[in-house]
Design a protein around this nucleic acid. Structure first.
Length: 800
RNA sequence: GCCCUGGUGGCGAAACUGGUAGACGCACAGGACUUAAAAUCCUGGGGUAGCGAUACCGUGUCGGUUCGAUUCCGACCCAGGGCACCA
């Protein structure tokens, strides 16, 4: 029963397509712009799931609403189409990954269209399109020119089973994220991007963003800015020295030993003869340790004395030098000073190795007194001073004697950018015989992938591209050259797609500079919290590089960010095939219609929350939509529609307009829809229905359930599409009430309520309250100590 | 271990800057319509006691501030997400 969703939804989807309703004229600068973006999907073989729908409905509501509010809205979609699953599919079936990917894209597209999302399909892009790859490679060459891309041989995570190298973030507990195969450390040639050069700006500009607090915190922690001091320690009896980094230079007098990372370049030189064997044994021991063991926090902190001493520059005391694998070679200076009296980790290490401790802060050693206002002792230059003062004094002193200075370090490391895989953008450089790197010329872009018979990585870590002989060998300026066989990671394409949407077919630039200036930054970006760090950090990095080249004009790409929560199965577990709790959106659309599915997903709770699926939910949403439809369909209501306002619905209508508008703009869709239900219930009860109010309901509901609302709008005798309607506005004067219900409390407990005139005098109100029988019961025989009156809210009577 | 979120009926949730806790919906119960059912419409539901008006209890736990606390402060417990020896 109810409306015919199949007919209505098909009708309007066709109408929108034929009328290009949602195509954005990006050059129309006459209206204010609004750019609303989804994190584009990876077109997997699985199809869209209900989680995608939540994300895309949320942005679609914003897009549709902002159009009605008079904005020129850009709402594009595309495909993050490179990636490992397509390559693994190719390996399994010996089909080209592009075939598989393009077929998936078609399937996704059909699903998106059935859901009625108002995307501008004329702006569609896929990261695998040749004219997209061209510009991804172009940006790489820009990075190369800026010395932000370089080759490095540092150890990486090699996965023999996948025959490829994995980035740190793709390794979980010593196993590959995909497949769960063991991973070992191996030194290999890799392309790196120098994101660390932008660490300070990536950190600083976080303050300018309207992003979820937790995401800002995560990015901050990932960048890991730390302000401390670099201190130079001379090695006793030599001309050599090394630097340490500390955030607690004030405890320098308490330093009783130093630790170098086992990989520290000085270790071999300064180890004493007697200790050579100990050191070698130790190095062997940790080399055979897996990363997992080495980073196990519960394990004892191991280390070994290397027979050399350093001179503490603050007091010229000799302190022993150890190597310890808890000191990381690639953080700070790869060396630390240890203050066992005031640091838990140093304390444990010193105990185990019987090293002297020296207390330099007031308080109890065993409690490792690190309290901020602790005073220093046994520290000639800073005795009696607190931590903050002491740091300033010692930083200044160390600088004067040339033994150190304030230094900022970051946890952030450079981005390992190459993959030894087939299905990614080829890195557009060639190598001459002497290993000289020659970038391709812009005219030679894009460098496309060759067709292969075999997609499997060679197993030695080389990309399958190394087997493509015809492609591999080229001539550059008459000289023999060999192409780079590494490809880019999937992140590359997603780093700049929001720019390409503006001008997806531009053959001369990423996009027309005029468009870039007008449309960026993105006004609203919605996607899963799983991208809180990597994708968003990498995209910000590229954006800043483009900013430095004056290609983009704003410092940050995404002004406002929102993470939708996860939709869980009805058993409160993450949806997955193996758990058997996956909900198929296609079936729901078939049975109840896209409008109902969209409505339910927005109504089920706050957008950011992870919520369990409710099997009755879509049906309930559908019943509500039928209820709205009945206002126009059944004679009972149709005959009540009038052109003359009897004012009985003024308050609820205008309040609804205000609340719904505000809630939509804040992405609080669940409460907006609750209010629309209240309004609907009131229309049901009303003696007559003022036609513009019904129209207002239809317009306000249309971003969520657009097909049915288009149909109803047409039924209310309008020509054309709802997309030409205007968003309703509210009159402040209708929001004022004549009477208000106030609560009366006695000693903090609610005892009665009282309906009064809004502009009643305070004294009158008190009198009324005190004369209520229900109140007298509590006040008779008691002394009234105090009466607190909060206008329009409460009267609080305090009695003895 | 550290950082971030959150904890409210049988369930999903709501509550503006401290001011009538539980809007809206699901499920449930009762009624109307129907030969009947479905659909629809109307009504009722935090708990305990009571026929009842009413009383007491109630927003993870324990304390505090306040006339008044889901909201603010302190300590703790639990769940989810993130990070991993960061000097």
């Amino acid at each position: 029963m109810g409306y015919d969703h199949k007919k209505i939804e098909a009708k309007w989807q066709k109408y929108w397509e034929e009328h290009h309703t949602f195509e954005c004229d990006v050059y129309d600068f006459s209206k204010p712009k609004f750019y609303v973006l989804d994190m584009f999907p990876y077109p997997s073989g699985e199809g869209l799931h209900v989680g995608h729908f939540e994300n895309y409905t949320a942005t679609d509501i914003m897009a549709r609403m902002q159009r009605l509010r008079g904005y020129n809205v850009l709402h594009p979609i595309g495909w993050d189409a490179f990636g490992l699953p397509a390559e693994q599919y190719a390996i399994k079936t010996n089909h080209h990954p592009e075939e598989f990917t393009r077929a998936n894209i078609e399937r996704f597209k059909t699903q998106l269209k059935k859901a009625g999302f108002s995307y501008d399909w004329s702006k569609e892009i896929a990261t695998i399109d040749e004219d997209y790859v061209k510009w991804t490679q172009w940006i790489f060459l820009l990075l190369l020119k800026d010395n932000l891309a370089y080759i490095s041989y540092q150890p990486v995570n090699f996965c023999p089973a996948l025959g490829t190298v994995l980035a740190n973030e793709e390794v979980i507990d010593g196993k590959s994220e995909v497949g769960g195969f063991p991973v070992v450390r191996k030194a290999m040639r890799q392309w790196m991007l120098k994101i660390t050069a932008y660490a300070d700006r990536l950190e600083e500009d976080l303050a300018t963003l309207d992003w979820p607090h937790s995401t800002l915190e995560m990015q901050k922690n990932w960048i890991g800015k730390s302000i401390g001091t670099r201190v130079n320690f001379k090695i006793d009896g030599t001309d050599l020295s090394f630097n340490i980094f500390t955030t607690r230079v004030d405890t320098l007098y308490g330093c009783t030993y130093c630790c170098l990372a086992p990989e520290h370049p000085l270790v071999k030189q300064i180890t004493s003869k007697e200790k050579e064997k100990d050191v070698e044994d130790y190095l062997n021991k940790i080399a055979s340790k897996s990363d997992l063991e080495r980073t196990d926090l519960n394990k004892e902190k191991t280390g070994v004395f290397i027979g050399a001493y350093a001179i503490n520059p603050i007091n010229e005391e000799k302190v022993p030098i150890y190597i310890a694998d808890y000191v990381l070679a690639n953080y700070g200076e790869g060396a630390v000073m240890a203050v066992p009296a005031h640091d838990e980790r140093d304390y444990a290490f010193a105990k185990a190795h019987h090293i002297e401790m020296k207390q330099v802060l007031e308080g109890d050693i065993s409690k490792q007194a690190m309290i901020d206002d602790a005073k220093h002792i046994n520290s000639p230059l800073i005795n009696g001073k607190n931590i903050v003062e002491s740091k300033i004094i010692l930083n200044k002193y160390l600088k004067e004697i040339g033994k150190g200075e304030e230094q900022i370090t970051y946890k952030l490391r450079d981005w390992l950018f190459s993959r030894q895989r087939y299905w990614g953008e080829p890195i557009p450089v060639v190598f001459l015989d002497d290993d000289k790197i020659v970038p391709l010329k812009e005219n030679d872009l894009p460098l496309t992938l060759p067709h292969l018979e075999e997609y499997k990585p060679s197993g030695t870590g080389e990309s399958p591209l190394a087997l493509a002989n015809d492609w591999l060998h080229v001539e550059v300026d008459g000289k023999e050259a060999r192409r780079e066989t590494n490809t880019m990671p999937q992140w590359a394409g997603s780093c700049w797609y929001y720019i390409r949407y503006l001008d997806p077919h531009n053959a001369h630039a990423l996009a027309d500079p005029k468009l870039i200036e007008h449309w960026l930054p993105v006004d609203l970006y919605v996607g899963g919290a799983e991208h809180a760090v990597l994708h968003l950090l990498y995209a910000r990095f590229w954006h800043k590089v483009l900013y430095d080249h004056d290609i983009v004009k704003c410092k940050e790409p995404f002004k406002k960010l929102f993470h939708q929560g996860m939709i869980l199965g009805s058993n409160y577990e993450k949806m997955s095939k193996s758990r058997g709790n996956v909900v198929n959106p296609d079936e729901l659309i078939e049975q109840f219609g896209a409008d109902a599915l969209r409505f339910f997903e927005m109504f089920m709770g706050p957008l950011e929350a992870s919520l369990p699926w409710n099997d009755n939910g879509v049906e309930a949403a559908r019943k509500y939509l039928d209820r709205v439809y009945r206002l126009l369909e059944s004679d009972e209501f149709k005959n009540k529609i009038v052109e003359e306002n009897d004012h009985s619905l003024d308050y609820v209508y205008h309040f609804s307009v205000k609340k719904v508008t505000e809630d939509y703009l804040n992405l609080q869709y669940n409460t907006a829809l609750a209010q629309l239900m209240v309004l609907t219930n009131e229309l049901y009860k009303a003696k007559s229905i003022y036609r513009p109010y019904l129209e207002g309901l239809i317009i306000m509901l249309s971003p969520v359930s657009p097909h049915l609302m288009e149909e109803m709008y047409e039924m209310l005798a309008h020509n054309g599409s709802l997309s030409e309607a205007k968003w309703p506005t509210y009159e402040e004067s209708y929001l004022k009430k004549n009477t208000v219900t106030i609560a009366i409390q006695v000693n903090g407990k609610l005892r009665a309520t009282l309906e009064v005139d809004v502009d009643i005098e305070e004294e009158k109100m008190k009198e009324m309250a005190l004369n209520l029988e229900t109140i007298k019961k509590y006040t008779d025989g008691h002394e009234i100590k105090k009466i607190i009156v909060i206008k329009h809210k409460i009267i609080s009577i305090v009695v003895s």
